[in-house]
């Protein structure tokens, strides 16, 4: 498999790209979608960790 002159990637990269404004919105949505569950997991785990020093 090689990247040659006929490679479609070289023909039209970015043809499906959203506009800059939409990209900004997607950045916020994307990081929120993964950030919120991660924070939930961290908080729940820290609550467990506290028992190491109190329980």
């Amino acid at each position: 498999m090689s990247s040659t002159a006929a490679d479609p990637e070289r023909e039209s990269p970015g043809r499906n790209d959203p506009s800059a404004g939409v990209q900004k919105a997607l950045l916020g949505i994307g990081w929120t979608l993964v950030g919120v569950p991660l924070v939930y997991g961290l908080v729940q785990t820290l609550r467990r960790v506290v028992t190491l020093f109190t329980g």
Binding site: D7, P8, E9, P13, G14, R15, N16, D17, A20, Q23
Partner: peptide
């Protein structure tokens, strides 16, 4: 080929 981003992505 449908997932290649453009330079401003």
């Amino acid at each position: 080929s449908r997932t290649v981003a453009g330079p401003g992505y």
